[in-house]
Each structure stands twice: as structure tokens, then as C-alpha cells.
Design a protein around this nucleic acid. Structure first.
Lengths: 144, 144
DNA sequence: ACGGCACTCATACGAAAGTACCATTCCAAT
DNA sequence: ATTGGAATGGTACTTTCGTATGAGTGCCGT
């Protein structure tokens, strides 16, 4: 199963290769007809390849950076059976909010938040919210 | 005050500019004498600039990655007036332990831990232990 | 010797957090 | 149309957390 990122990468690289071929053809053609200076062609090629270099490394460094810190593992969230709302609550807990404050922020009562928190604790198999944070960090389901 | 990094950057870019000028001169010269094909020149330029692009982005992405994560800022701890023991307790909190559990781990009573926690909260200027964790992360005084 | 600080501990109280159950509503899948 | 999950919320109760206050001990520096 090809995910979105892979598809996008393939598309971008295909486009890139086509652009390069086109560029070479144009430069050759212009040169043959003598209506373009060699310096101009070289300058264009230089700029284009400079940007290609920048682009390649950007996507590569992103790939290197991502697994180390931030970035959320959505698979794990589903695996744990955490619902959307429960995950929202978990995020607010990680910001240090009390149940009451979370309720105000999400426009529900403290009771509701307590229910959610209780369910979160069960699903993460922990006893306290601080423990839940520790575990969530371990599982990389909350941003660092 | 120029630090090492800035000096290095200036040096690298100077060298880069010189190299470019040299490259242009060589290509012009070769072309004038007719002993180099235009395609070869373009290819060389392309490769060189591709690597330049790669290089620029490598140093840039390193700069982005490095300062973000782990490593404890000891200066901040002193600045906050956190005592050694208080900091120990803070670390245990970040592991998700209850006051009672922390007491057992550090061989003191829960009362003592409560006192420490209270002092920590005051010094970090927060109301709850979860908030303390959030703030401690911000200040980079606990490992991520 | 004295003051100040870190660390320890206790009691008492109030505020959050968490548990257990139950009930209602709504939406989506069968 | 029925069912099951998700979200909501309420009551009642227990546990944990946090505050306030006071107090004892030991150490370090003046």
C-alpha cells in the first residue's frame, strides 16, 4: 500500500526529471541556433541544479529529523483504541491543564473530562495522569 | 563578537564564490579555444551546483536539528533556586510516580515529598505537577 | 557561636484527581 | 430499523495532591 508521502515523492521526482530533459533540449536547441549566449545557459543550469540540491536535501533532512523527536505515531493511537476526543484530552493534559480547565477549553463539563481521563488511563494501562504522559511520550503519541 | 560558526560560514562562502568564478573562467576559456563541448561544461556546472545546494542545506538543517532536543540546562536549575533534592523529586515526578512512591524510592516519608513538591511548584511558578512538567520541558531542565 | 539553609517530618484542611455506575443522545455500520 | 460505539454528564465515594504551619536536625560559612 503506497501512502501519500511516497506517491508525492514519486510525482515530484518524475516532474524533476522531465524538467531536466526539457532544459537540456532547450539549451541545445538555443545553442545550435546561436540565439542564446553560453553564459546564460550555464547560469540557468547552475540555478536550477542549485535548487534541486536544496530540495533533495530538504526532504532528506526532514526524514532524518522526524523519527527522533516530535511527530505523532497515529498507528499507535488506533492500536490503543484511543478515541479522537480522548486523544484531544490527552494533549491538554500534556499542557498541564486541570480537568476543569480542559472542560472549559473543550466546552464540556468537568464530569465528561473525568470520564475521558479515566478511559485514557485504562487504555494506556496506567494509574495517574503523569504516568499517562510518561507512557504517551514513550509511545510517541504526543509531541515532544 | 564573531563566534566560530560564523567565521566558518564566512570562510566557506568566500571559497565557494571563488570556486564559482574560477569555474566560469575555465568554461569560457575552454569554450573559446573550442576544446570542450558545451554539453560537458553544462554537465560540470550542473553537478557542481547540485552539490553546492546539498551542502548549503546540510549545514542549515544541522542548525535546525541540534538545539531542539535533550540535554539539561544546569544554569537554569540554579537560576530557579531549585535545590538538589527538589530536582531529584522533579525527575521522579516526570517518571509519573506518586508522592508516596517517590518517598519510597528516596527513603523519606510522603510528607517530605509533599513539602518538596510544594516548593518546586512555587519556584517554577505553577499550580500543578503536570504544569511543572510542561514548564520544566520548556526550560529544558529535564531530559526529553 | 550564630544565622541561614537544606532536608526532614507531622497534622489538618481543602482542592483535584480518579473510580464506579448509570443514563442519554447521536451517528454510523449492519 | 437496530445496534454498538463515542461523547456527554450526573452522583457518590475514595485517593491523591497541594497548602499552611510548625518544628527538629545537621551543615556551612562568617
Amino acid at each position: 500500500m503506497l501512502n501519500l508521502r511516497v506517491k508525492k515523492t514519486i510525482f515530484v521526482f518524475s516532474a524533476l526529471i522531465l524538467a531536466l530533459l526539457a532544459l537540456f533540449q532547450v539549451s541545445k536547441y538555443s545553442y545550435a541556433r546561436g540565439n542564446a549566449s553560453i553564459e546564460a545557459i550555464i547560469a540557468v543550469v547552475a540555478v536550477v541544479f542549485l535548487f534541486i540540491g536544496l530540495y533533495i536535501n530538504k526532504s532528506r533532512s526532514k526524514k532524518v529529523v522526524t523519527p527522533t523527536n516530535r511527530a505523532v505515531n497515529h498507528g499507535k493511537i488506533e492500536e490503543l483504541g484511543l478515541s479522537k476526543r480522548e486523544y484531544e484530552v490527552l494533549l491538554e493534559i500534556s499542557k498541564g491543564l486541570s480537568n476543569k480547565e480542559i472542560g472549559e477549553k473543550l466546552f464540556v463539563t468537568e464530569s465528561t473530562i473525568k470520564t475521558h481521563v479515566s478511559n485514557i488511563l485504562v487504555k494506556l494501562d496506567v494509574k495517574r495522569r503523569t504516568q499517562a504522559l510518561q507512557k504517551a511520550k514513550e509511545l510517541q503519541i504526543i509531541p515532544v
